[in-house]
Amino acid sequence: MLDDRARMEAAKKEKVEQILAEFQLQEEDLKKVMRRMQKEMDRGLRLETHEEASVKMLPTYVRSTPEGSEVGDFLSLDLGGTNFRVMLVKVGEGEEGQWSVKTKHQMYSIPEDAMTGTAEMLFDYISECISDFLDKHQMKHKKLPLGFTFSFPVRHEDIDKGILLNWTKGFKASGAEGNNVVGLLRDAIKRRGDFEMDVVAMVNDTVATMISCYYEDHQCEVGMIVGTGCNACYMEEMQNVELVEGDEGRMCVNTEWGAFGDSGELDEFLLEYDRLVDESSANPGQQLYEKLIGGKYMGELVRLVLLRLVDENLLFHGEASEQLRTRGAFETRFVSQVESDTGDRKQIYNILSTLGLRPSTTDCDIVRRACESVSTRAAHMCSAGLAGVINRMRESRSEDVMRITVGVDGSVYKLHPSFKERFHASVRRLTPSCEITFIESEEGSGRGAALVSAVACKKACMLGQ
């Protein structure tokens, strides 16, 4: 009897593995994704193909990295998701002549009506938060230079001027797309009239992360975010950046690689679950690469896999709870928690219980395998993109072996128990001629924006502006 049951459990697990095998990517698959990513990057950089390229390769006008001589107080704003952060950054000489960066910050959550109302409502709310922060720190009387981390696709015309191309991540505030974001912020500050600010720089969160990590390690020339969304930036040779005049030196390019796949480059790798996630998203047909990796989508992918296993009578005796059938019910943090389970399955059992399920031991094991399959594919897909960037940098610099540091931020990278190990191992397999160091950014977005502002202020002083 026991043997029969054991055989049935083994057969069930084997069927589960057959279904989950769809998520496995072979090294040849990853090399294919990497080569296609490089081709799209090239198209994004070139003037004649930029418009139709899915990977936009947006110039950021960040050319210099901090040298350690900029000092002063800077205000930093960070808008990239449902939370908005205001930070005071003091850049100065530390002990023994070292450079020191001290920060104080406060988080504000953005109400739904500000995210989806008008641009005026959104930026009025942001300036209200700045006003509140300055009151708390008794700094209303000071006109501070301000660095703005704005983590949406922007076409820069200068370091302090950028046109919002399109909202992502659930934002829909009308009247912002096609307009200068810094102008919208300046107008809102003017409307309030109770404080003055000098907006000197606007950067993407990947750029802010790279600059913040450069402060720790001067070989950091790539910034990457794996959180709600997924994106990367890197220092490109100016001669390859056709959208900006000049051939000397390097400029940081914001790849906006989340949109890779929007022209069909990933079609052969998309599964039924991916198509369902895409169809029910706020932007169907867009940001397809990001939807395979980002935390906004990972939990939902797992939920759809679990429903398939229920329908195949391989999980929960073929019956799903009402909660499990509800879109968004299986949160991405559950994926991390399930994979963090120590082996007694308590954590998995508790999560499934909150979803109205009474799982068996085998159910718990199957749910864990589903989570591992989805998150491992995410790590491997992400590795193909980064390997594409790094191999490109090595080739354009004609280096036999390139040493490089990548600064990384984002909740999936930082909080998932195995993502970074799987990701690092896969990147290294795909970049055999590179020695890569990964560092995690601390308060990256805010500190990085302030350091970019410090560079901009120093330049302005040198130019006598």
Rank of each mutant, 00 (worst) to 15 (best):
S336T: 00
E93C: 11
V310R: 07
F123M: 05
Q106L: 04
E245R: 00
G170R: 11
L307W: 02
A232V: 08
C220T: 12
L415M: 04
T206M: 01
H156K: 14
F260G: 02
G175H: 04
R345S: 09
T342D: 02
L463P: 07
Q98F: 12
T376W: 05
I130R: 01
D198S: 02
L292D: 07
L47Y: 11
S100G: 05
D267V: 03
S263E: 07
R191I: 07
E120G: 13
D160S: 11
K56S: 14
I110N: 13
G264I: 01
V182E: 15
D187H: 07
R422D: 13
M238K: 00
L75K: 00
G444T: 15
M393I: 15
L75E: 00
V253L: 08
Q38M: 05
M197I: 10
V277N: 13
M121E: 13
E290S: 14
H380S: 08
L314M: 08
L243V: 00
E196R: 07
E157G: 11
H218D: 05
L144V: 11
L315T: 06
W167K: 13
L77A: 04
F269D: 04
L164C: 11
W167H: 12
H424C: 14
D135V: 04
E443F: 07
A208S: 15
H380L: 12
S441T: 03
I110Y: 11
E9C: 14
D124F: 04
G147C: 07
R369C: 02
V277F: 10
K31V: 07
E40I: 06
R403M: 10
D262C: 13
D78R: 07
K31N: 09
S340N: 07
P145K: 00
R303D: 01
S151W: 15
G81S: 15
I225G: 02
P417M: 15
T60F: 00
M462L: 13
A201H: 00
F269I: 02
F74G: 00
W167M: 13
D363V: 01
M87W: 05
P417V: 10
L144F: 14
F23V: 07
S383R: 00
I439M: 08
D217R: 05
N283K: 13
Q106H: 04
T209K: 02
R447L: 14
E67V: 06
V277R: 06
H141K: 03
I159S: 12
M115T: 05
F316P: 05
V181L: 09
C252T: 10
F148Y: 07
F334L: 15
L185V: 05
E70R: 06
L324S: 06
R333V: 05
A259N: 10
A329R: 15
V310C: 13
S418G: 11
R358A: 06
R422G: 12
D113H: 08
E120V: 05
L122S: 10
G285V: 08
L307T: 08
L386I: 14
Y215W: 01
P111R: 08
E319C: 15
H317V: 12
H317M: 15
E120W: 08
K102M: 10
I439H: 07
P432L: 09
I390H: 01
V374W: 01
R345A: 06
E70A: 13
F123T: 09
A449L: 09
D341I: 04
R303F: 03
R63A: 00
V401D: 02
S340W: 08
T332Y: 10
D78L: 10
E236R: 00
E331C: 15
E93S: 11
F316W: 04
W167A: 13
I110W: 07
V374K: 00
V203H: 00
V310H: 09
L292M: 11
A378E: 04
A114D: 09
A201C: 02
H156Q: 05
P111V: 11
I130C: 11
V101T: 07
A450Q: 15
V401R: 07
A454N: 12
Y349S: 03
E14V: 10
W257D: 00
G81L: 15
D158V: 14
D400I: 10
S418L: 11
L122N: 08
V389N: 02
M210Q: 09
K142C: 11
L165M: 09
Y273E: 12
G68I: 09
T228S: 06
E236M: 01
K169E: 13
L88N: 04
D3F: 03
G147D: 15
R192G: 01
M393G: 10
L307F: 03
G81W: 15
R394H: 03
M34H: 05
R428K: 12
G464C: 12
M41K: 01
N313T: 08
N231A: 06
S426R: 06
I110K: 02
M298L: 14
Y61A: 03
E322G: 11
Q106F: 10
H105F: 04
A449C: 13
R7E: 09
I366P: 01
N180C: 08
R43V: 14
K296R: 09
P153F: 09
P59Q: 05
I211M: 04
H416W: 15
D278E: 11
Y108I: 03
D3I: 02
L122F: 15
A259I: 04
E216S: 05
D158G: 10
V408H: 06
W167T: 15
A370V: 05
T376N: 08
T405H: 03
K140A: 06
V455G: 13
G446P: 15
Q347G: 08
E52D: 07
S383P: 00
V277T: 13
T332F: 11
K296A: 11
P66R: 12
V374G: 01
I159G: 13
N83T: 15
G72W: 00
L2W: 10
L184M: 07
G464Q: 12
I130E: 08
R345M: 03
Y273V: 07
I110F: 14
A188Y: 01
